[in-house]
């Protein structure tokens, strides 16, 4: 933080108070994220109950294997992030950079696979709108499934991109030796965010890919 004017006093008494405040802030932010995605989950639930067959049909048009592999990829990237959090507290700097890099790469791999899937859907005319024409005849409510599919995975992907930006920034800081046990806050907070985004996918996976 740049010194500005005469005083840059933090509003906090000590580092512990600051750390707890940041924890609370991050968790409050996660609560807002729960409700942001929650709106989509509610819409999903309403339509899934109304149109079970259309949803099952839509789900079968998704790539089960990409969905499953992507879940594993994200869980692994969360593991790397969790190890990074331990590493920063123990001052294991090389491990820290390595784990951050691994987290980033796995997250990027997820997005690549996701992008490939989107491309497939485009080829198969499964993008909702005037050109929506699934093979085997469209049932109108099936478009609802695909609108929700794109809205939910799209919003999730936006969160992933933001997370990748944060992790890239942390990686740069770690390479410059700016992350250490004295201030583990940044890695910890970024980790909370990253794990939460992972949790969203943990629910998207069964709701989108596993309807039979």
């Amino acid at each position: 933080m740049k010194a500005e004017g005469t005083r840059v006093e933090s509003p906090y008494v000590d580092a512990a108070q600051r750390a707890l405040a940041q924890q609370l802030g991050m968790w409050a932010f996660i609560a807002t994220e729960v409700l942001l995605f929650g709106g989509l989950f509610i819409a999903y639930a309403v339509y899934r109950v109304h149109y079970p067959d259309a949803f099952a049909d839509g789900s079968r048009r998704l790539d089960f294997w990409i969905g499953t592999i992507n879940t594993a990829v994200l869980l692994a990237s969360s593991l790397a992030m969790a190890i990074a959090d331990i590493a920063v507290r123990r001052d294991r700097r090389r491990l820290l950079s390595g784990c951050l890099a691994m987290t980033w790469l796995l997250g990027a791999l997820f997005l690549v696979l996701k992008g490939y899937e989107y491309h497939q859907k485009f080829v198969e005319h499964l993008i909702p709108g005037p050109h929506f024409a699934p093979a085997g005849g469209p049932a109108a409510p099936e478009q609802l499934f695909f609108v929700l599919y794109f809205a939910m995975t799209g919003l999730h992907a936006v969160h992933m991109v933001i997370g990748l930006g944060v992790i890239a920034w942390l990686f740069v800081l770690s390479r410059r030796g700016r992350l250490g046990p004295a201030s583990p806050g940044r890695v910890e907070l970024a980790g909370l965010y990253w794990h939460f985004v992972d949790c969203v996918w943990v629910f998207l996976y069964p709701l989108l890919y596993l309807i039979r």
Binding site: Q23, L24, W27, A28, T32, L35, G191, L192, F196, D198
Partner: peptide
């Protein structure tokens, strides 16, 4: 993930309360 990766297990009660609030309100809706 919540308990271990996000370390909710070792957090103060207030933090856990914050973590649950979002789910509670989603349940209301």
């Amino acid at each position: 993930i919540f308990a271990f990766f996000m370390k909710l297990r070792e957090q103060a009660g207030l933090v856990r309360l914050f973590a649950m609030a979002g789910f509670f309100w989603l349940a209301i809706a």
